[in-house]
Nucleic acid binder design. Sequence first.
DNA 1: TGTGACATGTAATATGTTACATGATTGA
DNA 2: TCAATCATGTAACATATTACATGTCACA
Lengths: 190, 190
Amino acid sequence: MVKSRRTRELSRLELAALGLVLTGGPCTAYWVQRQFQESLSSFFSGSAGAVYPAIERLEQRGLIEGRTSRNGERVSRQYKLTAGGKKTLRRWLLPPLPAEDIAFTMDPVRTRIFSLSALSPSERLRFVDEALAKTRRRVEEVRDDTELLGQSGDLYSYLGGLGVLHEAEARVRWLEEVRAALQEEGGSDD
Amino acid sequence: MVKSRRTRELSRLELAALGLVLTGGPCTAYWVQRQFQESLSSFFSGSAGAVYPAIERLEQRGLIEGRTSRNGERVSRQYKLTAGGKKTLRRWLLPPLPAEDIAFTMDPVRTRIFSLSALSPSERLRFVDEALAKTRRRVEEVRDDTELLGQSGDLYSYLGGLGVLHEAEARVRWLEEVRAALQEEGGSDD
DNA sequence: TGTGACATGTAATATGTTACATGATTGA
DNA sequence: TCAATCATGTAACATATTACATGTCACA
């Protein structure tokens, strides 16, 4: 039995891609790419320049294995998880969950809040109102998409969608509070 | 009047740093770095290797201006926003808010959900229970920090903290739903 | 005949990460 | 005097982004 040498940790994209190959394999790199693009989470763009190299790295590590197949003139490479790949995924899922992953949070609208003093009181309200309107619309979109996922019978995708929905709804509630606070602070305009 | 030539867009880190200089200026790059490190949002690590170059780029663009000062042997460079910097911030805040910024969402726990089939039913519950416990603890931490921000009188920081709190609470509610769904699906073990 | 989805990649670019390195000042 | 904080940076590295490039296949 070979002791694996210490090697660099997998990036989030690599881990997510590995999980996709588990669920969808055997599948092509292109399919993985589409999953990223269609995902409700837009963290990864699903660009070819990111996905293809990531898949290659996973294969080089022996976490997935590819098999080139031919349909007429068309070649494609189908990947599936190896035993090592599954072990890696299990290590990723089983305790302990790293603190950074629990604390991770990012909202580009929230980032902007800290610069609000560059605007006049009425402009601040305009900012929040736009964010509120667009986030509400986003909630509806996510709700629809999640409902579809629920009907598709894919439990984990549905649960993922539900997570995105909860987050979007939380943003709406938060923005409503922000709006109230700004109105109170507001007073006269510029 | 000089038409500004088309130039690359500012990165999120640059924009966030610009906002920090608005709020905290005149301030040092080190101070900006500390703000990132202490922020409840852990999206940016606040590493010197990211912050110092970003501040330099902002200065080269004329969005902030620095002034080297001397206290005894100690030199430090104090930055403050320029008129152009303020204009840039206002453009960032005023409509339209880009759709990507509204849709942006990332939760490393949620990412893992899609790979849950690598675990046995009882392991899946263990995963969710750990996430739930740690996220609940996180909610308490964020609540405390946000309360302090509220007492500090810095309205925008407080509102930012409130946003993080809402998000953490939403994650707890979501994980509770996930737990229920997994128990229902669960049945027999491995 | 042409469009769009399938499929695979590369190149240029920039950004951010970790780790290293240095030195002054403050306060216990 | 020692540790922590203030303060400024650099180097190596990998990764992700956009844009480009190519070609097949199904179908209307």
